[in-house]
Design a protein around this nucleic acid. Structure first.
Lengths: 333, 333
DNA sequence: ATGAAAGCGCTAACAC
DNA sequence: GTGTTAGCGCTTTCAT
């Protein structure tokens, strides 16, 4: 209030007439000081407006109480990553950790590497410099999906994308789809790559033509309409469309309809990423449920286990995902 | 790789045959050392796998490169707060800050107060202990919406909720609503309180009965159906329903329909918080657009301005919000 | 162009 | 029960 000089522990100690050790112990209820002095110190601390310096504490105790989370750039608008992040945040809070979202591009200068006890990397791209920086930052790293680059993380949470994707294709096949197309996501990450591979393999197995169009990771929405129109004119016999990038299916929907196709009728539509709009679309659109919230939570849990020594480094955990089947893939006539 | 003892700056300095000062300067390109030694030190650092200790750096430089963000507990699933958070994160990244989500309940112990240069409090509730802790943590505080408690933050970003809400009511009135009801949110925060007050005032002005039901902040969904049914049986002449809590309108929709009401026909429906499902609902539901992304971004900007001395403490900034009018309030018959 | 020393604010040994 | 001392790993004077 009065002066601007920061109130440190020594200031409190002096004012209370004790040593800084005693002050420290008193404020942390270490059970070392007498009740009388404890109260006196506590009162003084409040009076002076003392607040502990977290950096000093972290430096001394070699722990920060926070874990870092890095998401792919340009994807901070996607429902998937938001849910993922909050799943991690919620679980971390339960384990008494806070979460720092590491999004700053600047790798040097203040804020380059921050005080965290470990980091979670969601869908780490080899091409992301921040990923490289964090991988070599000497704190434990957990990734969601495998890192396709050189270094290997201390823990991995991965989902059975390929299996679930093939299951989706099988279901489409069962209800009649013979010429399905994939609007693919970039193969730069584990997820995008494995979907593309699965698709080609499935097409080979079933003898279907591998109708595939790749969109860049993130920022896909703008290019979807042209891509879909292009696909339709190239392949008029198309009878199913599976969209990988988050949000692409919602963009494709009106385009397909404008082209005279009936969704759930002569054209089946599905998405590889579920989201709220898909549930409420007309017709509701079938999607793979990636359970982002659980994925984030599981990453936090695994990182915690590694930090606490419960899980050995190199642990890999599987996350169960599913399919939310909706009307867009249930031909009604 | 080889040993587990942490690689510190002195270790690098020793290995490179220089003093720690020189090592430090070399690694930060301070332009003090000769190119030859700079290269040698850099090479040594990489070879040893050196990573700077962020806590030590923060302690010394009295800055952390991160800002804190606290959201109301139990609301980490809401689209509004997720968008808010990511709006803040994105803007902070632009200003070269990272964001720490402070959600851990534990106020003492490790992770109690973390290394942040300032904090953003979204819709701070007087009843939230974390809010109190942060308010007295000696770092600058920016709130989104006014804090109804004692302490006053260093900056405030607020929206014209009352005005926009009354505008919404006026529009409903224009298209014929004479007996609108409000499914209110708790009055514990600034937002909930101001909506309730506005509603009563508007009712007084227009001579409408103040049909109001209050739901607790967060966790509202479970109680909405009963509340709506109760309202309908109490007030059969109800001709419009405005839902304040995020998500309540989507829950109310089927309940109203089951009760035989036609949305957009004999009953108008609107929400005080927009979200993706509302846009895609049948019929699409009118909602106040709180622009959460911009709110978060503006908070980050204001906090940055306060930290850098550009904005004086006590600054208050307004955020423009709007109304997304949809079919649920456009009577078509 | 480089080193030596001081010290950021705190907690943990080790006295008494 | 309390005080003294020694660092945590770094950046920054101030010398040379």
């Amino acid at each position: 209030m009065s002066t601007d000089e920061p109130v440190t522990l020594v200031a409190v100690a002096r004012a209370a007439g004790v040593s800084k050790t005693t002050a420290s112990d008193a404020l942390r209820n270490s059970g070392r000081v007498s009740e009388a002095t404890r109260a006196r110190v506590a009162e003084t601390a409040i009076r002076l407006g003392y607040a502990p310096n977290p950096s000093a504490r972290s430096l001394r105790m070699a722990t920060t109480g926070a874990i870092g989370l890095h998401l792919p750039d340009n994807l901070t608008r996607s429902e998937y990553y938001m849910s993922f992040a909050f799943g991690a945040v919620e679980q971390a809070a339960r384990l008494n950790y806070n979460v720092t979202l590491i999004m700053s591009r600047q790798l040097s200068g203040p804020g380059a590497f921050l005080p965290v006890d470990g980091v979670i990397l969601a869908d780490p791209l080899e091409t992301d410099p921040v990923v490289h920086g964090l991988m070599s930052s000497r704190v434990p790293v957990v990734t969601c999906e495998r890192f396709t680059g050189q270094a290997s993380p201390d823990g991995v949470v991965r989902s059975e994308h390929a299996a679930m994707f093939e299951e989706l294709l099988d279901r489409l096949h069962t209800v009649g789809a013979r010429r399905p197309a994939l609007l693919a996501s970039s193969a730069a990450g584990d997820w995008g790559a494995s979907l593309q591979a699965s698709f080609r393999q499935w097409c080979r197995r079933t003898g279907a033509p591998a109708l595939l169009r790749e969109l860049p990771f993130g920022t896909a929405a703008d290019e979807v309409p042209d891509c879909v129109r292009d696909l339709l004119s190239d392949q008029p016999e198309l009878d199913a469309l599976v969209c990988a990038p988050d949000g692409a299916a919602m963009v494709a929907l009106p385009v397909l309809r404008d082209a005279g196709r009936r969704i759930g009728g002569d054209l089946l539509l599905a998405s590889c990423v579920d989201s709220a709009p898909l549930r409420h679309a007309d017709p509701p659109i079938t999607a793979i449920d990636l359970r982002p919230r659980e994925a984030g939570a599981e990453c936090a849990r695994l990182l915690f286990d590694i930090l606490s020594g419960t899980a050995p480094k190199g642990t890999e955990r599987a996350l169960r995902i599913g399919i939310n089947e909706r009307r867009s893939t249930r031909p009604s006539g």
